[in-house]
């Protein structure tokens, strides 16, 4: 099975590429990147071909493509893949706006290709185990959730709203919003957010606390801030605290770690758990191999999570809770 990658703009591309190489029966057929130097570099490292034109890459008999371009460019690349009849794994957030996301979903559906949103946290073992415990009723009925997905300011195009669609809120809301939807089976009814540019010198939202009301009466908060500094022992976190009628559940998705204190790098966490990016890519490939028409994590899942971030931005402008349906 031949899989290509469109752009190494997003750093996850390298991790996904390594997963593709490890998978049996999968060939990393090529890399397109508008930045030739970057594309050539990674093509060399990964032992694959570089393409300066994505249409050319898409015509190499690919079964699937991984889209890891800048958020604003997802649409162009996904629509091209749909047109070429190639299944798509699209990096999160699915897009910078809901209209583009809907177009992407429609185009893939019309072309009969699978559109999967890359939500790697769904493949984190502790998160999977938590979902299992919830489904077994171990917590009773879920009442409330408290999530964090914090990180460092990634800089580069991530802080250019024209390419990213926004800062910390669009970058770090979608992962945990998706997990919350997955765990509860409920949809977001309302979002309130306090957002700010409190740390960055560049004008971009880097701090945010969202309050979320689900349509089944569950409430939640989510800290999406780029509030980790270089001295923090790891890049960031994904945590979720769940309060149910029968118990509580605390998830620290990267809690499987060693504490390493080196002269060179100071105190760092080294994660030793299963690689969730590998799980994500393996699932995408397996869905293609099984001839599925719908991915396990869909474009609609990507859109629903994006809507939470978009509602948060709107809420911060209006100083009131906003329903994603109003957007």
């Amino acid at each position: 099975m031949k899989i290509g990658i469109v752009s190494f703009a997003h750093m996850h591309a390298y991790s996904y590429a390594k997963a593709l190489i490890q998978l049996e029966g999968v060939e990393l057929a090529g890399i397109y990147d508008p930045d030739e130097q970057r594309g050539q570099k990674f093509a060399g490292i990964l032992g694959t071909s570089y393409y300066g034109d994505y249409a050319e890459l898409l015509s190499q008999g690919l079964s699937g493509i991984v889209v890891t371009s800048e958020n604003a460019n997802h649409k162009e690349h996904v629509l091209a893949a749909a047109k070429a009849g190639v299944h798509v794994l699209c990096e999160k957030p699915i897009s910078t706006n809901a209209a583009d996301a809907r177009d992407m979903i429609e185009a893939c559906k019309a072309a009969g290709v699978m559109l999967q949103t890359a939500f790697p946290v769904r493949y984190n073992r502790s998160v999977i185990r938590a979902k299992q415990m919830i489904d077994e009723g171990k917590l009773g009925r879920i009442l409330a959730m408290k999530g964090t997905n914090r990180g460092q300011n990634p800089g580069g195009w991530f802080v250019d709203p024209a390419l990213s669609g926004g800062g910390a809120v669009i970058d770090h809301t979608v992962h945990v919003a998706d997990i919350m939807r997955w765990f509860t089976g409920a949809e977001v009814k309302e979002v309130y957010a306090e957002i700010g540019q409190l740390m960055s010198a560049v004008p971009i939202d880097d701090c945010g606390i969202l309050s979320i009301e689900f349509d089944n009466g569950v409430f939640a908060t989510l800290d999406c801030s780029w509030s980790r500094n270089p001295s923090f022992p790891t890049w960031g976190d994904v945590t979720l605290e769940i309060v149910g009628t029968a118990g509580t559940l605390t998830i620290d998705a990267f809690g499987q770690k060693l504490n390493v204190f080196s002269e060179e790098r100071g105190y760092r966490h080294h994660f030793w758990g299963d690689d969730m990016d590998f799980g994500l890519v393996r699932d995408f490939v397996a869905s293609i191999a099984e001839g599925r028409t719908e991915a396990n994590v869909t474009g609609v899942d990507g859109l629903k999570a994006l809507e939470v971030a978009l509602a948060a931005y709107r809420s911060a402008e209006r100083l009131t809770a906003v329903s994603p349906a109003e957007l």
């Binding site: 009442l143 309130y192 409430f219 939640a220 908060t221 009628t245």
Partner: peptide, 9 residues
């Protein structure tokens, strides 16, 4: 801004 369990359960 606040959310709480009071009145929900």
């Amino acid at each position: 801004y606040a959310k709480g369990l009071h009145g929900r359960v």
